[in-house]
Each structure stands twice: as structure tokens, then as C-alpha cells.
């Protein structure tokens, strides 16, 4: 092979790669009778694996209700939080139902349905903590734990600029570390924190208060992530969300987990 041939080949491959990237993908002709749903499985009570390894949680039950409403067969796969968006883009699954906030940065990469719930972030501290209120001054010099690559981590960094914010791989690890006293406070969704504080594992700590949900960070609530161009599927999900909101199915699922309205206003 000559150098020229190699270069021509390289050029062709590049052109091909560029073409594939910019092609307007559309799912108009696609038959969505089966949908693969990706979730994290480590974010109770929204999505988690129970003792027998089955996926449970609000996200999972909402997903099942939506699938039933759309009359499609759904299968579930779990995926680490960090790799969620690339996995969706690579086609490992078709819909991402994992309590993901609809943010401008994420919207550049993937499409979102309308929100299916919206709850504020909150901060929890050990019961004997000297932190009296969730303000920047009270958290000055303290160590805050949050899950890596989440909106809550960004919120913690922006609300408490003088604190040290440590990024944990999942919620499980920051819970271990507030228990052992390595972090002074943790920031996460109010529901996630409340559920944990109610359990034996959360006996160490108390809720200090909810935090303002800055829309620049939190966007428009929690939505279902889809590949850009899958407009037909997006319409199907949006209609199904409205339908289960209207027919009481959503409330049924919500009441199984929470005693308040998680949909938000």
C-alpha cells in the first residue's frame, strides 16, 4: 500500500465519520413495540436493587406504568451514573429513566420528555452537628459530600463556595462517610435524604433544610432522556405521562413511595 492510498483511505473514513455524526436521525419509521430502559439502580427510593437483585423504585414503577400506557414491552438495564448519557447515545438503551434533571448542558447531548417529577435539593447533617442553618456562612470551612456528576454536586459548590465539596461515586458512599464523620454535611434530593434518614442507616443524621433549586443548575425538573431525533418516542412518552397523570395511575405509584406530591408545580 502506498502512502497516497493510505491517505485516501483516511480521508474516506473521516468523511464517513463526519457524515454519521451530522446525519439527521429520525425514528419515524421505527416500530417502538419494545423499548429498553436504562436506570442506575443505586438511588433509593427512586431506583434501587432489592435484596433479590430486582430493580425497584419510583422511577422504575413510573416507567412500568408508562410502558403499560403506551402498550409497549419494556426491558430494564442498569448503567453507572457517569456513563448514562454516552450509553443512551450508543444505543445500549432507548430511554433513560433515572431521576435525571433536564439541564441545558444535557439538552445539548440528548432530548428530554416533559418532567415526570420535581423535588427540591436538601442538606442533611449529623444530629450533634454545630451547623445551625443551611447558609454559606454556616458551612464555611466544612466538608460537604455529594454524588459526582450530579446537579446536587453543582448546587453544593455554588451555594456553599467556602466549603470543601467532595464528589462520591454513588449516594451509598457519602452516607458511609457522614456516618464515620469524614464529612460534615451531605447534599442530595430531599426525598432521597428523607428516605435514608427514616431508615436505620440514617439514624446518625437529621435534615437541616431544603435548598433553593436554582433553575440554571436544575433546569426544568426530572425528565426521561432520549436520543435526539427519536421524536416519535418522545411524543409517545409525553402523551403517556399526561395520561397517567390524568387517570390516577401516577398518584397510585406516588402514594406507594411518598406521602406528598412529588410532581411539583
Amino acid at each position: 500500500m502506498t502512502l497516497l492510498k493510505t491517505l485516501v483511505l483516511a480521508g474516506t473514513a473521516l468523511a464517513f465519520a463526519a457524515g454519521a455524526a451530522s446525519a439527521q436521525d429520525t425514528d419515524a419509521g421505527k416500530d417502538w413495540s419494545t423499548v429498553v430502559i436504562g436506570t442506575e439502580g443505586a438511588y433509593p427510593p427512586f431506583n434501587f436493587l432489592d435484596a433479590s437483585g430486582q430493580l425497584q423504585g419510583f422511577d422504575v414503577d413510573v416507567a412500568k406504568a408508562l410502558c403499560e400506557q403506551m402498550k409497549v414491552t419494556c426491558t430494564f438495564v442498569t448503567q453507572d451514573w457517569d456513563g448514562m448519557i454516552p450509553a443512551l447515545q450508543n444505543g445500549n438503551f432507548d430511554a433513560l429513566i433515572a431521576s435525571m434533571s433536564i439541564t441545558p448542558e444535557r439538552e445539548e447531548q440528548i432530548a428530554f420528555t416533559d418532567k415526570y417529577y420535581q423535588t427540591p435539593p436538601a442538606i442533611a447533617v449529623p444530629k450533634d452537628s454545630d451547623i445551625a442553618e443551611p447558609t454559606a456562612a454556616a458551612l464555611d470551612g466544612k466538608v460537604i459530600g455529594a454524588q459526582t456528576a450530579t446537579t446536587h454536586l453543582q448546587a453544593a459548590e455554588s451555594l456553599f463556595p467556602d466549603a470543601e465539596v467532595r464528589p462520591y461515586p454513588t449516594a451509598e458512599e457519602y452516607k458511609l462517610d457522614i456516618d464515620s464523620g469524614r464529612v460534615d454535611a451531605v447534599v442530595d434530593d430531599v426525598v432521597v435524604l428523607s428516605e435514608w434518614l427514616k431508615s436505620d442507616a440514617g439514624a446518625c443524621c437529621k435534615l437541616l433544610g431544603t435548598l433553593p433549586a436554582d433553575s440554571a443548575i436544575y433546569g426544568k425538573g426530572i425528565g426521561i432522556g432520549l436520543r435526539k431525533g427519536d421524536e416519535k418516542l418522545r411524543t409517545m412518552f409525553n402523551e403517556a405521562i399526561q395520561a397517567i397523570r390524568a387517570n390516577g395511575k401516577y398518584k397510585e405509584v406516588q402514594d406507594k413511595y411518598f406521602d406528598f406530591d412529588v410532581y411539583g408545580s
Binding site: 447531548q109 459526582t148 456528576a149 453543582q154
Partner: peptide, 9 residues
């Protein structure tokens, strides 16, 4: 890097 990726994708 992961942090930068999670901000920019």
C-alpha cells in the same frame, strides 16, 4: 476529566 466530561459531555 470525568468531572469536566460530566459538565460538558
Amino acid at each position: 476529566t470525568r468531572r469536566a466530561y460530566s459538565r460538558t459531555f
